[in-house]
Amino acid sequence: MILKGRSHKFGDNINTDYIISGKYKFKTLDMNELAKHLMEDIDPEFYKKVQKGDFIVAGKNFGCGSSREQAPLVIKYAGIPAVIAKSFARIFYRNGINNGLVLIETNTDEIENGDEIEIHLEEGKIINITKNKEISSSKIPKFLIEIIREGGVINYLKKYKNFKLEE
């Protein structure tokens, strides 16, 4: 799976309250509506800046905080297929993969706001096209790549019935 997109850069510890504020998430299950409030408390204009296929690039501990699955969902519904970060909070990591969001752990110091990025998921490789530089990333277990490929764990389980943990 190869994805190509433009980077929107954020710092460390972007928590789930920033991604989607608690005051909205309890009101509705309409993710298209919630997606309009993506990152609103730290960048009120963010939703308008995003183009379909863009990536979020961040520092350490992306998605820390609540277990709200609305967080990865609003990112996906805003048209962002992947988040690249130095590290992810664990619940966010599971929630993201479960919803078919591509999550890559790598040193994001090499990526600036607006850079064109190419993700090679299976190879664990990222290319910063703007800077003409290759960045290695940690490889994702095979069954998680399968989950992403199926668009999320629900589709995956419908197809395979069980988790195929053995590689």
Binding site: S67, I91, R94
Partner: peptide, 10 residues
Amino acid sequence: SGVGSTDLAI
């Protein structure tokens, strides 16, 4: 441990 809604549904 805390999980998201999809994990809990499974």
